[in-house]
Structures are given as structure tokens and as C-alpha cells.
Design a protein around this nucleic acid. Structure first.
Length: 1051
RNA sequence: GGGCCGUUAGCUCAGUUGGCUAGAGCGCCGCCUUUACACGGCGGAUGUCGGCGGUUCAAGUCCGUCACGGCCCACCA
């Protein structure tokens, strides 16, 4: 087929091509993978995006990298499966749906009820899942869509249920009263990872609690301080250090040690601390010792306002160097106090309702919210004369990531996964290399986090998620528990392993019984003996009904989203069924994700994989950088600096987006991407700043017309066309695609009646040998780079080769041969082959444009390739990955080219400097060795075609023309006969500058070479190179000096 | 408080195991409508490689330290 310039567009129409090409791939089933024992699998499971909303640029990065890898491996002959899916994202999704419900209908979830709300969320999910999968397709993702999973679908549900049952049965899952981070707005516990600390302005109140029946010599009051006065209503003790003197001694010793090591400017601070410690020992120690003794005697103090007696206890948590040395203990509302409570067997009094108001334990403050209660408590304490003082202070307050409201530590029944053994197994897998993390530094965080082995709280007080498959019954007394257990022991389903049970003893009751706290404590209700939990393996309504009839009640809570995502690599493959997929694809090959979920997700996948499958979920993990905006801030829709990948695809094309993503993937922690608004009127890019990114409308800096942003709310603003948020960073990829497109366009126009066939070595021109040599090198580089996740290296190597070598040199040089009958055939064959290989190397990164060019190339040259032509694959997606042809590597040719390029550059530089029009032919002389002359003289035609210059002399003793411009290069001088073109001043200025530079370099080298240490100790080849280099520099300097003299330049 | 990352041209970033004159893209300056490409071509200018100290014949590269920016983890009444 013949291509004509007229009907061959010089722009790649990405919008039109992407859709058509993607549909073709999908239709032909190229994305599909099925187990095939004859082939090696290569598997990636997608980090399932949340169905909360649309994909952002981070997703574009993450999924581009996966697609690049999966496409490369597919071409390399692996049976490549990319498993797609989405995540139900419990809290996040329920929160957005609830928010809409509130805003649009003024209803809460309780108005709707569990079933209806869940139904609403499913509707939301349907809508967003479709949108997300559509976005992935527009990105070019080659997932096997037939296998799309959702973390809340039936397959995943079965996996969750089996895992939960197994862990329950092994005793790895338990329920306990624990302090949780309570989000009073969403009314659920959130995990530590969903909590962020914020510094806010607060106060520090000092309260006095009266001592009961103070004896002579004993204090009347104990003073404590708090930032949360209302929590005193839940106080159950005052703590003092068990050995305050020793504690102060130890502190002082530590401070002295620190002082010795501290840098000068910090010494004063440490000294002040030491003084303070000494002062405290003098002034406060006797009181603290007295209080300690009282604590050991079991003395009590009176909790004001509620008139409840509480204990004095001795516990190391009370630090003598802090505040008054005494600390109030609120076990139900403070994590540290909770630990004290456990150690000292204190009652735990919860004063809060789930909505954040005070419950009956708050006495007269019942029903108030926290702010009101705080105010009233302070007022009442002041009125009672028990408020000693108030200070202003900045305090760290935990906030919920989701609702942005303050977190209240709250004592609640929660389910936990015991982490000790599981965590250890996941640590071992990374330590012994069964799972390799790239870049390796990220293994440290993974191991550190796991080594704490903190139990994983898995219950969430939500409705959207996997409901915990446990039915529970409270046992008032031991007899009841024994009777129920006996019943379960005789149960056929328990015997058959379909049902498991656990008795949870009530910790408060245990503590209360030992210490008789219930008498004085506030726990008015009788505390039951414990709770019996029954876990049912499979979804079975009949079985459930049977237990419900016996008085067991289904657990309301659902599981943490990460519980189901933790199973993703095996649940998506069908576990617990023994599917052929599971057998064939597990363990998967690589996981590609971002660093913020290494612990939350990666670690947990490893431990559940080991527990359920007995093997790791993936062999390698690649952690990619995070994209920040131009200010170094995280991109987010709420800041207005988020780039929508679809806007980028619309403007620049999916390939440009993908190229940009690949190009920035180095091993760094994060990358900055300055953000612009695109004017919808004139396409001008307007830099985004912290200020303008918050505006609802912006006037274009070029055409001055206004456009709207995501903040537009008024009818007037909304009527304006919207300005997309993009980044000019993607111009790089767009331009690259355009360059490739036009190189291909040129090639295709110039190969009408292409005849396939081999090329004899004797028919290969020097540029053919050169480009084939370079192609072999680049093929190897790209293959290696992708193997090591060095995405940016692959992208750069291809860019440099395609642009600077293939386009700028090879295509330019081959032009005249394509006009010449005798050389045309060989030139076409090499050109077609080179383009073919280049396209295949580029395909994983730029799938659409390479496919388009591949199809066009197939029309012109259906059979092509060196050394022997073969029919091209029907799609580049299923073409074979190129193998570097080592035999084509030719150092001599590459060397010749390097010299040629330098000489050519020198000629062009002289032309530019002397302002000589391209039409005017240059005459030049090259002063160089005979070898160099031999090497370069054959390039004569290219000097003519590429610089419009012809040589008039070569060799060591050439006679340069009188009037000339010179460029002195290592190993040769390029001298151009200038006749009357010369701009003497420009030439002199340049020569002088070069003279100075050379003189400086020579001085440096001479100094180095006169250093005996260098000559003696450095490797001989390094020294020899330095000498050679010095000689060359001196030669160059000589040339420059002569030229300066010849031209009579003023010195 | 602990850990990690970064600091190289105006901007965004490359610089493998220390060793030839530290690079790219964008931007900037000059020239060019050369029949693939102005999303282009040719040429040019621009760097005390964050500071200080050390190891070494030799440091952008290794070590120590400080400063600044960022991220993660843990947090005290």
C-alpha cells in the first residue's frame, strides 16, 4: 500500500484512535488469560480502587506502571494476568452516601434503616464501579475484565467468612473491651491509621480532689491537671509514682548524660531541666512519698461533683517530674489510663454515649455534649473552690480522617486479630527474601511496624461491609455458661467443624470481684459473668436461625475493609475453592502500590496469604513515588489541586499521560508536578497558586476571558465553560508521541512497494550499522530497566534513542538513499525493521500510538525484519518482545558516529555563530590524525546533507585557509574557510572564552598529574587517561591560540 | 521523640560500583515556514552539586554533623 503525505495526517488523533483500538483489543480477547500449564504465568492483582469516587492522578500512576509491566511480560511470552477489581471501602463509602442522604433528603442512616441504607450504597457502588473501570479502560489498562472482583461480592465474602472462622477457631480472633478511637460523628470506631493528630489551642486545668479523712501530716487535697476536665466524671483513681525518689534520680542521671552529648545551644535547656528536677526533689518529694504511702495503705480520695470515692494507686505512669506529680486516671477514656486501669484492676467507667453526649455515669451532666459538659464541670469546680489554676496550652488532639471531628477514646466491645504469630510469619517472609520489596529501604518500615505485633482491631460499627459471622449470648453467671457450653459440645455442627465457639470472660467483673470495687464504684448494674460467642463458617440461614432461637444474637458490626482487601491475592482467584486459577497463578508475581499502605495492606496480605495458602501472596513488591503538586502538597479534590486523569487524556492523550507517569517513576519518595488551569477559550495554561486554586472563577491571563473551576456554585459561574486542571508536564509525552508519529509518517510515505527480504551485510550503510548497533544496546537497556522497575530509565532510554538517534540522525541520513534506486531497497528494509523494533519496545508505555503505527506499518510492510523478514503480528499487543541482537553491536561504528556528530556540531555551531544562511555551502578542513581522517572521510556525503558543508582537506598537516573559524575538539580541529562571512569580534570573543576554559582545565590536570600520590596510587589506566586528556587539551589550546593570533584579536 | 526521603541550571528532575570538560525536558536568547514533524529544526547562555568537617591520589557520589523542606510512626496528665 502507498501512503501519500496529503492524506496522511501529521497529528495523531488520539481521541478517535484510543477508543477504536481499545475496542479491538478487547474484542479479540487479548486481555484474557486462562491457566495453561504449558506456559509460565505472570500475575498482578490490582490494588482495588475505592468505589468512593473517581480515579485521581495517583491511580493513573499506579495503574500505568502495572500495565507497562503486564504488557511487557505478555510480549515476552508469559501468560500474563492482570486481575482487576474494586474495594468497598467501608467507612469512606458509607460516609459519602450518608452525607448525600443528609444533604439531599435531610435523613440519617437511622431514618432509613440498615437494609435500605445498604441498598443505597450498592446503587452508589454500581455507578462508581462502572465509572472507575471505564477510567481504567481509557488509560489503556489491559486487565482481564471477565475476572473483575469486588471486595464485597460473593466470592470475596466466602473468603472472608472462611478466614474469620479459621482465625476464630485457632483463637487468633477474640472480642475484648478496648479503648477505641471513637468518631462521635460517624458513630464508629476508627483504626489508629484513620486518625491524624492536630495541634489546637486548649487549656490546662489544675483541679483539687479532697483526701478522705486526712490524718495529721497528710495533705487535705491532691492536685491533678487535665486538658479534658469533663473526663474527671469517669475517673476511678489518682496515681502517684511508686518510688518517686528513684524516678527523679534516674531522670537526673539521664539528663546529665544528655547534657554531655548535647550541642552547645541545647545545653542551657538541659541544664534548666536538671535544675527543675533538683528543685522538685527538694520541694515535692516529701509530699509524693507521703501520697505513695497512702496509696499503699489503700486510702481513697473524693471525686468532686459526683461525690464518688476513688482509689489512690501507685503506678509508674505517674511521673514525679510532670505537673503535680499526681495524675487522674480515667481508664475508659484515655489509652494510658486504660493501661493503668488494667495494671491496678481499676473499674472502668464509660461516661459517653455513642453520639458523644454524656450518659448516666455523668450524673447531673448527663445528656450534655462534650463542650457543654466541659464548661459546666469547670464552672462547678471553680464554684466548689477546687479549681487551682488554668493555663493556656497547645495540645495535640486526635481527629478522625473521615469526619474531621475530634476523636474520643471510648471503651467498647471490639473484635481483634491476635497478631503475634501472624505478624512474625509476615516478618520472616520479607527477612528471608520470599517477598522482595523494591526499593529495599521500604522493608524497614514494614518490619518495624509488624515487630510491634499490636493486635488488629477489625470490627467497625458500620452497616456497609462484611458483617461479622458471630452470634453471641450473655451469660449472667458461670452456671449458665457451663450449661450452654455443654450444649455446644454436643452440637453436631460444632463436631463437624462448621461452627466454633468461644467464651469471653468479663474483664471488669474479674477485676471487680478481686477488689470489690462494685461496692464503691459507679457500676450500678450487675456485671455478667461473660459472653459466649458462636461463629458459623458458611452463610446458612437455617443454622443461624437455630442459634438465634437458642438466644444467640448476631453481631451487628462489620469487619474493617482491610480484612477483605488482605485476602485479595487469593480471594480473587477463588479461594477457598481449589480453583485451577489459584493453583496456576498463586503466588502472584508483583504487587505495585504506594508507600502509604505498606503496613495497612501489603503486610496484611502477606500474613493472610501465609495463613490461608501457606505461601506468600506475591514474590515482589514495587513501591512507587507519590505525586505532589508544585507547592509540595498532596493533591486532593478538597484543595482544588487535583488533576483528573481524564482531563489529561482528553487534552494530551492516554499515551502522553502514561509516558509522563513512567518518566517520573524513579526511586525517589515523591515527585512534584506543578499544576495549571487550562483556559477553555484559548488553551493557555495558567499556573495554579494557593490563592487562585480556591476561586470559583478565573480570568485567563492571555485572552482575559473568564472560566469556572470546581468551586463554581452561582448560576453565573456555572454558566461559564470549565477550566480543566492539568499539568504542562504532560507536554513532554505528547510531543514525543508527535515526533514518533511523524517519523513513522515519513517512513511510510517513503516505502511504497516495499519488498520484504534480507539485507546483505555489504549493503548495509554506515548509518544502518550504527542504528542497528544502538538499537541492540537500547533493547537491552529497556529490557533490563523494566526488569528492575527502573521505569524512568526505560522511558528516557527510549526517548533519547527515538528522538536523538533514530529521528535526528538515522532518518535524516537515510533520506537521500531513499531517493536512490540502487540503495533504496536496503534502506527501506533497515528502516522498517528499526521502526518495528522501536515500536515494540515502546508499546508497554505507549500502547495506543504504537498500535496505530503498527497497523499502518503492516499495510506498507506486512512482512519485515532483519536478518530474515517474518509476517508481522496482527497486533503489537501480541507481538514478541525484541531480543537484543548482540552481534549487531559495533563499537567502531559507534565511535565513528560520536566523532562525526561532534564534527557536525562544530560546523553547525560555526554557521550559527557567523550567521551563515543554510543555503550557503561551507568549506571546511579537518586537522586530525590519519586514523581519524580514515574514520570520518567516508561520512563526507552526510556533512553535505546535514550541514551543507564539504571538506577540502584532511590530515595532520592540513593548511587552513587564512580567514577561518575554528572549533577545537578532542582529537581534531574543525576549520571553516570563511572568506568574507566572518564576524571577527564574535569569533575572537568565543576563542578567548574557550582559551580561558582550556587553560583552567589544563591547570587542574597538571596539578593532578604532578601530585605524586595520584600517579602512584591511582590505577594506571586512570593516570594514562588523564595524561592523554591533558595532551589533547594542550593541543586544543594551541589551536585556539594560533587562531587568536591569526585573527589579530585584541588580547 | 524514632525512622525514612529530598536539597544538582529560573522550574521539574537524571547522574549506576568514587575517576575523562556534571546532563535532560521545560523556560530563556539567536537563527530557520530545509518537501516527517513549529507538539518542529539548528545553535547558544545559565551550576560555589544546601552549609561545615572527614576519609581518599581523587567526592555531586562514601562517612559525620548542621540547616531547610517533606513523609511515615509513636506521643505524656
Amino acid at each position: 500500500m502507498t501512503f501519500n503525505a496529503e492524506d496522511f495526517p501529521n497529528r495523531f488523533d488520539h481521541a478517535q484512535a484510543q477508543q477504536r483500538i481499545y475496542a479491538m483489543w478487547e474484542e479479540r480477547g487479548y486481555f484474557n488469560s486462562d491457566p495453561d500449564p504449558k506456559r509460565k504465568p505472570f500475575t498482578i492483582v490490582i490494588p482495588p480502587p475505592n468505589v468512593t469516587g473517581a480515579l485521581h492522578l495517583g491511580h493513573a500512576l499506579n495503574n500505568t506502571l502495572q500495565d507497562v509491566l503486564i504488557r511487557a511480560r505478555r510480549m515476552q511470552g508469559y501468560n500474563a494476568l492482570w486481575m482487576p477489581g474494586t474495594d468497598h471501602a467501608g467507612i469512606a463509602t458509607q460516609a459519602v452516601v450518608e452525607k448525600r442522604l443528609r444533604e439531599e433528603e435531610g435523613k440519617t442512616r437511622h431514618d432509613l434503616g440498615r437494609e435500605k441504607l445498604v441498598e443505597r450504597i450498592w446503587q452508589w457502588k454500581q455507578q462508581y464501579e462502572g465509572r472507575i473501570l471505564g477510567q481504567l479502560k481509557r488509560l489503556g489498562a489491559s486487565c482481564d475484565w471477565r475476572r473483575t472482583r469486588f471486595t464485597l461480592d460473593d466470592t470475596c465474602a466466602r473468603a472472608v467468612r472462611h478466614t474469620f472462622f479459621d482465625l476464630f477457631n485457632k483463637g487468633f480472633i477474640y472480642r475484648g473491651k478496648r479503648l477505641v478511637n471513637w468518631d462521635t460523628f460517624l458513630q464508629t470506631a476508627v483504626s489508629d491509621d484513620e486518625v491524624e493528630q492536630k495541634t489546637v489551642k486548649g487549656h490546662f486545668w489544675h483541679f483539687r480532689y479532697p483526701v478522705i479523712d486526712p490524718q495529721p501530716g497528710e495533705p487535705q487535697f491532691v492536685t491533678i491537671a487535665t486538658t479534658r476536665p469533663e473526663t474527671m466524671l469517669g475517673d476511678t483513681a489518682i496515681a502517684v509514682h511508686p518510688d518517686p525518689a528513684a524516678a527523679l534520680d534516674k531522670l537526673e542521671a539521664e539528663l546529665k548524660e544528655k547534657l554531655a552529648k548535647a550541642p552547645g545551644k541545647e545545653k542551657a535547656g538541659v541544664e534548666a531541666q536538671i535544675d527543675e528536677t533538683r528543685r522538685r526533689r527538694e520541694t515535692m518529694l516529701p509530699l509524693l512519698v507521703k501520697l505513695r504511702d497512702m496509696a499503699l495503705d489503700g486510702r481513697m480520695v473524693m471525686l468532686p461533683l459526683l461525690d464518688r470515692e476513688i482509689s489512690l494507686v501507685a503506678d509508674e505512669w505517674a511521673r514525679p517530674e510532670m505537673g503535680s506529680g499526681c495524675v487522674k486516671i480515667t481508664p475508659a477514656h484515655d489509652p494510658n489510663d486504660y493501661d493503668v486501669g488494667l495494671r491496678c484492676d481499676l473499674p472502668m467507667i464509660n461516661i459517653l454515649n455513642p453520639d458523644g453526649t454524656l450518659n448516666e455515669n455523668g450524673g447531673p451532666y448527663k445528656g450534655l455534649n462534650i463542650q457543654q459538659a466541659r464548661k459546666n464541670v469547670v464552672t462547678d469546680m471553680e464554684a466548689a473552690g477546687l479549681l487551682e489554676s488554668v493555663e493556656d496550652r497547645e495540645i495535640e488532639l486526635p481527629h478522625s480522617d473521615r469526619s474531621k471531628t475530634p476523636i474520643e477514646p471510648f471503651l467498647a466491645d471490639q473484635w481483634f486479630v491476635r497478631m503475634d504469630e501472624l505478624a512474625q510469619s509476615a516478618m520472616d517472609a520479607v527477612s528471608d527474601g520470599r517477598v522482595k520489596i523494591f526499593p529495599p529501604r521500604y522493608a524497614k518500615g514494614y518490619l518495624d511496624w509488624l515487630s510491634e505485633k499490636r493486635d488488629w482491631p477489625v470490627s467497625r460499627q458500620l452497616w456497609w461491609g462484611h458483617q461479622i459471622p458471630v452470634w453471641s449470648q450473655i451469660c449472667r453467671d458461670k452456671e449458665t455458661a457451663d450449661r450452654l457450653i455443654a450444649q455446644l459440645d454436643g452440637d453436631a455442627d460444632v463436631a463437624a467443624g462448621r461452627v466454633s465457639y468461644q467464651l469471653e470472660l468479663d474483664v471488669e467483673r474479674e477485676a471487680a470481684e478481686r477488689h470489690d470495687h462494685t461496692v464503691r464504684g459507679a457500676a450500678k448494674v450487675k456485671i455478667p459473668y461473660g459472653t459466649l460467642h458462636v461463629c458459623i463458617l458458611a452463610e446458612d440461614d437455617k443454622l443461624a436461625a437455630r442459634y438465634e432461637k437458642q438466644g444467640y444474637v448476631r453481631e451487628e458490626d462489620v469487619l474493617d475493609t482491610w480484612f477483605s482487601s488482605a485476602l485479595w491475592p487469593h480471594s480473587t482467584l477463588g479461594w477457598p475453592e481449589k480453583t485451577p486459577e489459584l493453583e496456576y497463578y498463586y503466588p502472584t508475581s508483583t504487587l505495585i502500590t504506594s508507600r502509604d499502605i505498606i503496613t495497612l495492606w501489603v503486610a496484611r496480605m502477606v500474613l493472610t496469604g501465609l495463613n490461608n495458602m501457606g505461601d506468600v501472596p506475591f514474590r515482589e513488591v514495587f513501591i512507587h513515588p507519590k505525586i505532589l503538586d508544585g507547592e509540595g502538597e498532596t493533591m486532593s479534590k478538597s484543595k482544588g489541586n487535583g488533576i483528573d486523569p481524564l482531563d489529561v487524556i482528553d487534552k494530551f492523550g492516554a499515551d502522553a499521560l502514561r509516558y509522563g507517569m513512567t518518566y517520573l517513576t524513579t526511586e525517589t519518595q515523591d515527585v512534584r508536578m506543578p499544576v495549571q488551569f487550562e483556559c477553555p477559550h484559548c488553551e493557555e495554561l495558567i499556573n495554579q497558586t494557593r490563592k487562585n486554586r480556591e476561586l470559583p472563577r478565573i480570568a485567563c491571563s492571555k485572552c482575559n476571558k473568564p472560566f469556572s473551576t470546581q468551586w463554581a456554585r452561582t448560576a453565573e459561574d456555572l454558566a461559564l465553560p470549565r477550566g480543566a486542571v492539568v499539568s504542562e508536564r504532560f507536554e513532554l509525552g505528547r510531543n514525543f508521541c508527535n515526533k514518533l508519529w511523524n517519523a513513522a509518517r515519513f517512513a511510510l510515505i517513503n516505502m511504497p512497494e516495499f519488498e520484504a527480504g534480507p539485507v546483505a551485510d555489504s549493503d548495509l550503510a554506515v548509518e544502518d550499522r550504527w542504528v542497528l548497533s544502538r538499537l541492540a544496546t537500547v533493547t537491552q537497556e529497556v529490557t533490563d530497566a523494566l526488569q528492575e522497575y527502573h521505569y524512568a530509565d526505560a522511558a528516557r532510554a527510549l526517548y533519547d534513542f527515538a528522538w536523538d538517534e533514530f529521528c535526528s540522525f538515522y532518518v535524516e541520513m537515510v533520506k537521500h538513499r531513499l531517493q536512490d534506486e540502487s540503495s533504496r531497497v536496503a534502506a527501506q528494509r533497515v528502516l522498517a525493521h528499526t521502526l518495528d523494533v522501536l515500536l515494540r519496545l515502546l508499546h508497554p508505555i505507549l500502547p495506543f500510538i504504537t498500535e496505530e503505527m503498527w497497523q499502518l506499518l503492516a499495510k506498507a510492510a506486512p512482512r519485515r525484519g532483519l536478518p530474515k523478514p517474518t509476517p508481522a503480528a496482527e497486533s503489537i499487543m501480541i507481538a514478541e518482545w525484541p531480543i537484543a541482537d548482540a552481534a549487531r553491536r559495533d563499537a567502531r561504528i559507534e565511535d565513528r558516529f560520536a566523532q562525526f556528530q561532534q564534527a557536525l556540531g562544530a560546523l553547525r555551531e560555526i554557521r550559527a555563530r557567523q550567521n551563515i544562511a543554510p543555503k550557503n555551502e561551507l568549506e571546511f578542513t579537518v586537522r586530525c590524525s590519519a586514523e581519524t581522517a580514515d574514520l570520518l572521510q567516508p561520512m563526507e556525503p552526510y556533512f553535505a546533507s546535514m550541514a551543507n558543508a564539504h571538506s577540502i582537506g584532511w590530515g595532520e598537516n592540513v593548511e587552513p585557509p587564512k580567514t577561518n573559524a575554528t572549533v577545537s575538539l578532542p582529537g581534531m580541529d574543525i576549520i571553516v574557510d570563511l572568506k568574507d562571512y566572518i564576524d571577527v569580534e564574535a569569533e575572537c570573543a568565543r576563542l578567548k572564552k574557550q582559551q580561558d576554559k582550556l587553560a583552567g582545565l589544563i591547570q587542574g590536570k597538571e596539578k593532578k598529574l604532578s601530585n605524586a600520590g595520584f600517579v602512584d596510587k591511582a590505577p594506571a589506566d586512570v593516570v594514562a587517561r588523564e595524561r592523554e586528556s591533558l595532551a589533547e587539551l594542550q593541543q586544543q589550546l594551541e589551536t585556539v591560540r594560533t587562531a587568536l593570533a591569526d585573527m589579530n584579536c585584541k588580547s
